[in-house]
């Protein structure tokens, strides 16, 4: 397997590259990003590319990759302008798929990491979304609109390229100790915000299950759309109980207006889609991916409890992992210098 990975500098790109390096049948891993990797990598090749991936078709031709994992879709809109969002999500995906679908392209599999944000949060929504169900209202936030657009492109791509296995995974509220999301951020606060009078039910996913799901798609052929979310919908109040946190209520009317100054000055950032989630929650049906053979290692409550444990550890010892800084020359030396004895050569 020769893999091309987008967003190598992001949390997901980094952890995914680390995971792929451990698989023997993965020969080559090429990681694209505008930012340098933030985790130590052994054999992944980092290529600095602009957000539009203009050099992509050249890379695909040159490296003869057969699998593309598109993990670089922005789902966290804190500190991201809607223009950047559109550029990275929509234009980026468009170029990526154009390169993957070019004539003579060696690509046989495309895996995209999307989000259950495409379903939105509304009082008119069903309690559980199945993959083929439509949301009750058309998307109102820029991130939801961009993801819906990305999925449309992907659908066209799948239609036009029947020889390519296309897996679209929609992940739901991922929790992980090193992962920074609007939800994980507010769950780290001494008092967790809630919207007065609302106790929505949410579905969480452990970050290891996310990696597991993406690797599962890389190793098996699972074409189609899949929700990835652990079993169990849990009320926000219970999430706070598991984390042993107090709650603080936001006004139920004019919540967006109330939060505007906070969002602006970065004290507590709750984008609009997260506020909607805290009002109405969201549930998805995860049975299709299970039927395809995937097994979860955590339930929703288990994912929250694991997050609680990580926070407790963090409180005692701080960040347990050593800091890493990417040094281009050092990385090149280890990968390409004849002086380095590599296990494969011996």
């Amino acid at each position: 397997m020769r893999v091309l990975l987008t967003g190598l500098g992001t949390y997901w790109g980094g952890s995914l590259a680390q995971a792929l390096e451990r698989l023997d049948d993965v020969e080559v891993i090429v990681g694209l990003d505008t930012e340098e990797p933030t985790v130590p990598l052994e054999r992944t090749e980092f290529v600095r590319a602009d957000t539009g991936y203009s050099i992509l078709s050249r890379i695909v031709r040159a490296t003869q990759v057969d699998t593309i994992i598109h993990s670089h879709l922005i789902v966290d809109t804190r500190n991201v302008s809607s223009r950047t969002l559109h550029e990275i999500n929509v234009i980026g995906t468009m170029n990526l798929l154009a390169a993957a679908g070019a004539t003579g392209s060696p690509v046989r599999k495309v895996i995209v990491k999307s989000s259950t944000l495409v379903y939105g949060s509304s009082y008119q929504n069903p309690t559980f979304f199945r993959e083929e169900m439509q949301r009750a209202r058309s998307p109102r936030t820029s991130v939801e609109r961009s993801l819906v657009e990305v999925e449309d492109y992907l659908r066209d791509f799948a239609e036009d390229n029947p020889h390519v296995v296309v897996s679209l995974l929609r992940f739901s509220n991922v929790l992980g100790e090193r992962l920074d999301t609007p939800l994980s951020k507010i769950l780290r606060l001494p008092a967790v915000p809630e919207i007065f009078g609302f106790d929505p039910r949410l579905q969480f996913t452990h970050h290891e299950d996310v990696l597991g799901a993406l690797l599962f798609c890389a190793q098996h052929d699972v074409p189609g759309i899949y929700n990835v979310a652990a079993d169990g919908l849990i009320p926000w109040s219970e999430v706070c109980t598991i984390l042993a946190k107090r709650r603080v209520a936001l006004p139920p009317v004019g919540t967006n207006l109330f939060m505007a100054p906070f969002n602006r000055f970065g004290l507590v950032q709750l984008p609009r889609e997260t506020l909607e989630l805290l009002r109405y929650g969201r549930g998805v049906d995860n049975r299709r991916f299970k039927r395809a053979g995937f097994q979860y290692h955590y339930t929703s409550a288990g994912a929250v409890a694991a997050f609680a444990e990580a926070l407790r550890l963090e409180r005692s010892v701080g960040d347990a992992q050593p800091a890493y800084r990417y040094e281009r020359d050092v990385e090149n030396f280890f990968r390409h210098s004849p002086a380095v004895v590599r296990s494969g050569d011996a």
């Binding site: 995971a19 993959e131 083929e132 169900m133 439509q134 992907l154 659908r155 799948a158 239609e159 029947p162 296309v166 897996s167 679209l168 290891e208 990696l211 597991g212 799901a213 690797l215 599962f216 098996h220 052929d221 699972v222 074409p223 189609g224 759309i225 899949y226 299709r288 039927r291 395809a292 053979g293 995937f294 097994q295 290692h297």
Partner: peptide, 25 residues
């Protein structure tokens, strides 16, 4: 609304259950 219609999801559902071993982290 599914990707490339049911043909795909059918194939997906048939993905070999026995060999379907996810990653342990």
């Amino acid at each position: 609304s599914d990707l490339r219609r049911s043909r795909l999801s059918e194939r997906g559902e048939r993905a070999d259950r026995a060999s379907a071993v996810p990653a342990r982290v």
